[in-house]
Each structure stands twice: as C-alpha cells, then as structure tokens.
Design a protein around this nucleic acid. Structure first.
Lengths: 210, 210
DNA sequence: TAGGCTTTGTGACTACAGTTACAATAGTTT
DNA sequence: AAACTATTGTAACTGTAGTCACAAAGCCTA
C-alpha cells in the first residue's frame, strides 16, 4: 500500500505521513458503477483516489439528477471532508465511473494530521479549492451554456476521463447526467453525427472529431 | 476594533487571536454598491465581514452575470482565501449589497494563524464548507428551478438580507442577478402582483405575502 | 410646464428544450 | 427463427424564456 500511496501522493506528502496513512487506513477497490456514497449517508472516512474516476452527482427532491464533476487520480472528496468535520449528512452521491482503487482514511486521523502535517493541511486546502473551482465551472455550464454545448463538453470530458474514443453510454444515461430528456439528447447527438463529429451505435458513441 | 471583532467573531476566536487580528489588520467601510473585488484581481487580503452584506457574482466571457450567493455578518470569502493560498486571480466579483464594515487580514498572517490557532483553522474550514454548500444551493436553483420560483427565492433572500419589506431594485438589475432579461422579469413580477404577493412601484418592490 | 431620460408594461414573435406517441432497429432469450 | 426487450429515431406538439418593438408612466430639470 505504501507503494500505491507513493505513486499517487508521494509528491505531496512526506514519508512519515505516507507511513501513517498506510498504517491506519484501508485500501479498497470498487468496480465501475458501484455507488460509493449516497445522499443522506453519514460519512465514516475520507477517500483518497488512487486510480480510476468517481462521478459526483446532485439530486433534487423529485429525484432529478445532475452530474457535478469527476474526481480523478490524486483527488479527494471535499464534500466528504466537509461532512466529516461538520458531522453532517452527505449532500451528494458518488458513483464509480470506472473501476477504482482508493484509500479510506478514518475521520479521526484526518483531523489529527491537519494539526500535525503541513503537507496534509495544504492537501486538504487545495482539495477544497479545487472543488470550489469545479463547482464554479458546473455553474458556468448550466447557467451560460446551451444544451448542445453542454453535451459536447460532456462527451469530451467523458472521453478524457476514461481515456477512450468510445463512450459507453445510452442516450438515457447521458440525459440523466445532464438533467435533460432522452429525446432531446438523441436529437442533438444525431445532429453531431450529421456534422461528422461523432458516430452513433447501440450502447456506445464513437468520437471522431470533437 | 477589538470591540467590533469580539461582537462578530468573539464566539469563535480566542482573545489572543482577536488581539493579533486587531494588531495586524485594518477596519474598512464601504458604501452600498461599491465593488470590493473584480474578476481577475490579485487578492491582497482576506475580508472578515463585520456588518452588512456582500453579493458574490460570476460572469461569463460575454459579460453575462449571475448572482452566486451573499456573504453576511461573520462570514468570510472562501474564494478569496483560495486565491490567496493559491496565489491565483479572483474567479468572482464581490459587490457591497448594503453599507458594509469589514476587517481586512493580510494574506501572510492568515497563513501563519492556520498553523498557530486551532479556532482560526476551524473558522477557515467552516468557511469553505459553507461556501461549498452555498454553491450547491446555487446549482440546485439554476438546474432544477424555473424562473418564477427563482425570482420568488431572490425576493425573499433579498428581503432577508436587507431586513426590509421593500426591495430597492429596478427590474433590469434583478434580470442581471438572475441572468435573465428585463422583459421576462417584468412579466413574472406582474404575475406575482396580480396574485397579491407583491406590489410594484418605480425603483422598488414591496413584499406583501411571499 | 415642457422636454427629456429612465423605468415599466405589453403584444407579437422566435428559439430551445421538454413531452407524447409511435415506429424501427439491434441484441438476447427461448 | 420467433419473441421479447432495450435502445434509438422521428414527427408533432407544448411551454418557458428570450427578443423586438413600441407605448405609457414617473421623475427630474431647465
């Protein structure tokens, strides 16, 4: 586990801290699609993402979803952190977007380390900072962009996250992430295909030139 | 200034810290409408709000605005903080919504205190936490609510912030905050008036029963 | 009080997104 | 291969928000 930690967090954390994390935390793996955190959950640990990607979703009281952003290698979940420190329920849902590997740090420890390790403190602050900026970007997208632009951004991001030109999604799933309807997404995808930017197939979309 | 600080932050900070803040920071006052921070500014200090309210705005590259949230008594600006620590430019605009009084803490000091004072550290974390939640709420509003609901929420919030039943805004100003158009806002306001919820006048709106 | 500027009101139109309904197609199962 | 299910395609319609154009009303100033 020290190896894994060094690869992902070695540049941030001093080796003392790496040792401490390894001693007190557990390495976990989840397969793509697994729900990691549900809205309303009390959080018992703070996840440090070693590999893969997690998507963070918001839901309104009618059950409508919206993709907020992705967590990737080296990230942690500030929302989780906020919940740990505040001892409140999770405001978001976290779902494994790919197969993932993560280290779960117990709340108690993470609080201790804030006082003890400067590098941990900086990591936690950076994490908050990054998440704020991600959320700002999400606001930009839904406030200032039209659906066709948001869809293109979605496809690009998804391709980047999964490192693939093929996006394994039904139109319905995309519609959920963007808080739109299946028909609207199908319509816009068809337009993109007609422009030669993508190629549509059952259960997957091939990116040609986005 | 120690007096002001004690009133607003006494319950959070130990008196040592209050003394330090008073020694190294400056008390400033701005009148309603003053621009405190502009997008792209490098930030030189971190504001602790003593009285009044500040509105935080986002702008896209076409100059379209959107109100994100308000800062009130006892709040600070996490965005600012994030910028200070990261030494990056401001992503947001801050405008005095009412006459305000604030204490400006030099960046250097605020970093020192994170190591030195547990209460300061908690304050900074809480602040991040609160801002994340405010932003989440903003996302909810623009993603899940229709314009008429958002307008009602806006009027309620504005009334709460200013502690008044009279809202001193032109329809155009409201349209800017909600990233809509004047005509749309006028239309919806007229509907609310017809329902007996508000009363419209030139340059101000009276809230009757929202 | 006449003229000018700002703000508000309103009708008519456009555009985008969302809905309904149904057909067609591609896989999967029996 | 037939039947079934999930997914995609498409036409027609609705509704909300945004735009354009212009009138009316308030307020200020000369």
């Amino acid at each position: 586990m020290v190896n894994e930690l060094n690869k992902s967090f070695g540049e941030f954390f001093e080796s003392d801290l790496i040792q401490e994390i390894a001693k007190s935390s557990s390495l976990k793996e989840f397969s793509s699609g697994t729900k990691i955190i549900e809205i309303g959950d009390y959080i018992k640990g703070m996840p440090l993402l070693i590999s893969g990607a997690i998507k963070i979703l918001r839901e309104d009281n009618e059950g409508d979803e919206l993709l907020l952003y992705y967590l990737e290698h080296g990230d942690t979940c500030s929302m989780t952190m906020a919940c740990c420190l505040g001892d409140t329920k999770s405001e978001i849902r976290a779902v494994a977007e790919t197969d993932i590997k993560l280290v779960m740090v117990p709340i108690k420890k993470m609080e201790d380390w804030i006082g003890k390790y400067r590098s941990w403190r900086n990591f936690v602050f950076d994490s908050y900072h990054n998440r704020l900026n991600e959320l700002l970007h999400t606001v930009d997208s839904i406030a200032f962009m039209k659906m066709d632009e948001r869809l293109i951004e979605y496809l690009r991001e998804k391709s980047r996250i999964t490192q693939a030109k093929i996006i394994n999604n039904t139109h319905q799933e995309i519609a959920y992430d963007l808080h739109s309807s299946r028909v609207v997404i199908s319509r816009l995808l068809k337009k993109l295909e007609q422009m030669g930017k993508i190629s549509l197939h059952r259960n997957h979309i091939e990116i040609i030139d986005l």
